[in-house]
Nucleic acid binder design. Structure first.
Lengths: 341, 341
DNA sequence: CAGGGGGTTGACTACGTAGTCAGGACTACG
DNA sequence: CGTAGTCCTGACTACGTAGTCAACCCCCTG
């Protein structure tokens, strides 16, 4: 009974069993009107008996739509990208779309392009660049489907591009303002890789807040999102007695920074204040618990996905992007500067 | 020129332009033999000119294969699951398969079942349960495709199930033995949720090592993989002066445990040794840097994916599973117990 | 009773690809 | 020169679904 039929049942099989036409089965499965209740139930019973499922391939072929969205995500397991992916998938499923995922090989030129191409080859109705980076000339796509990018992402400004700049500027500003408000003379910044738009956004927010306060801009320190790079940055900062406040572009790097400060014997927040970003689950359990910026991944995903799906389904130009708010979570890693004696 | 053709070009269009039959285009695109070099190049040129891509839907319909694997992953952004996903995707793409992802809603009964169903509805040739959990009676699937589960996962023992128990037993054993070898009287364990097979594996490894050493088994403490649950467990352990060594089932919980010990004024490793698991990037930058167990996600993914693809493509029963080795990374969170005075 | 209109159903077909099979060109060999 | 064997090519068709269009039933209205 197990290895009976090679092929899975089709609507024709269901139709035969229910004594109706294949088209009627199609109507029932799609919830179309103009099917009598009796027939509907007979068809559903037959479908259940045979274990029938609509064949997506045939459906896609006929409709010219895959009901599938491709996501280009990052080839490493950072908290932000992972959370975004989870949120995107939840929303996509609710909206009736399946999610295909491909990862970029960080640092490998043209890997975003390769990833997009892989998605187009699979067949998707839209593409999301979850962690857009600027690969420069490498990225020049003429996508035949709408593309949603969480960042400006030049090079894809084809006819049907959706862009939203949701993650970063506001966060950088809020973090910096928090530290300035505590009385720090200025705020240093350990940034993400500069070809990442998320990193650039945060840098911009940081700069904007410093400018607004009329405060000097310390040199930028660039990491690669990893705790190791945060540690390196922290070692450097630890040698400079003028540093009293640091905004780190993600919590993972902040862990490295905290470690470097601990090794250098610099008390946080007594001697230096640190603000992270992302509010990873571990942030509250670091030593000291980390003040950080929390992003609402669910909201960003929901907003972005809605734009993309609208564009897919209506072909309408997407609405302009909102700046989604960042939320400051104050813990114990920030404090006013020590009195200058 | 941008909004010209509604439909993307098909092999027929390429054929017309190249002056050959549609079938010949198909042959060229599939790299079949028996096509003259001249024709091949003419076809490829035409395809390039039109921006032709094979239509996956039509292909899948014809072949009865989707060339797609579905992955059921965890609805939260933990390091282990994320790393597994990345590794799986890389291997899948190399093997010519696309990856669909769905997330479970942790703690919601039947969500694995729902996830699997969602994948079957999308159309996949195989399914991977990346983080198998035991939902008890909830999970009873008669999958029409091979299923690969990184754990025993009863309830799907349909005809074509592939199982590998790659992650955990060995790790639990190695961690425990390391602590015993340092001279600790026994080792406590902060486990993952007991319905997770990964958690059970680690528990088994821990128990086995204790039994082998002929050492008493302390009561099991169960967390939920989160730093918060680790913190709770740590607070409890901190009250017991007999505790000198703890094996924590993942690094995230270990962060919470370390925090609890720090708050309680218990020196690690002076007073208590802690071993984590996963070797998250932050592990080396905690205070103190965490001794942990590293799993080779790439190897596990490659091995599992190979089994699954073999099964998909040949229908052959899969080979028995290996126990993939766990690698101990010794840092500063473990030391011999303090001399009992 | 004729005509009309809505509810319900089915026959036919397109969608783009690759498998099957037949046939033409050309070479090698007896 | 005939025949067999390669190499190359194309016509035809199936795959499972849903759109189009026509037809039928039944009840209501004039």
């Amino acid at each position: 009974m197990s290895l009976a039929s090679r092929r899975p049942p089709g609507s024709t099989d269901v139709a035969r069993l229910a004594g109706v036409s294949q088209k009627t089965v199609s109507r029932v499965m799609n919830g179309e009107p103009y099917v009598s209740e009796a027939v509907r139930e007979r068809v559903l019973a037959a479908a259940r008996e045979l274990g029938y499922r609509r064949n997506t391939a045939a459906r896609a072929l006929n409709l010219g739509r895959f009901h599938r969205i491709g996501v280009v995500s990052l080839g490493s397991a950072l908290y932000g990208p992972s959370s975004t992916l989870v949120a995107l998938e939840r929303r996509a499923r609710e909206t009736g779309y399946a999610l295909s995922i491909v990862h970029t090989l960080e640092g490998q030129d043209g890997s975003v392009m390769a990833a997009v191409d892989s998605l187009l080859a699979q067949g998707v109705d839209g593409i999301i660049l979850s962690e857009p980076i600027d690969e420069g000339q490498e990225l020049r796509i003429e996508p035949e489907v709408p593309v949603l990018s969480f960042g400006p992402t030049p090079g894809i400004d084809g006819p049907r591009v959706v862009v939203t700049g949701a993650s970063g500027v506001d966060a950088g500003r809020v973090a910096t303002e928090h530290l300035l408000a505590l009385g720090h003379a200025t705020v240093w910044h350990v940034a993400g890789p500069s070809h990442w738009w998320a990193a650039r956004d945060r840098i911009n927010g940081w700069r904007r807040a410093l400018d607004t306060a009329g405060v000097a801009q310390p040199p930028l320190i660039e990491g690669d999102w990893s705790p190791a790079s945060g540690y390196t940055a922290g070692r450097m900062l630890a040698t400079n007695p003028e540093v009293t406040a640091v905004f780190v572009a993600n919590d993972e790097m902040a862990i490295g920074v905290l470690r470097a400060f601990a090794e250098a014997g610099l008390d946080v927040p007594g001697r230096i204040s640190v603000v992270g970003m992302d509010d990873i689950p571990a942030a509250a359990y670091l030593s000291p618990p980390l003040t950080t910026i929390r992003q609402d991944f669910e909201a960003v995903a929901a907003y972005g996905l809605k734009l993309l799906v609208d564009e897919i389904e209506s072909g309408a130009a997407a609405a302009p992007h909102d700046e989604l708010p960042a939320h400051l979570v104050v813990r114990e890693s920030t404090a006013p500067p020590r009195e200058t004696s």
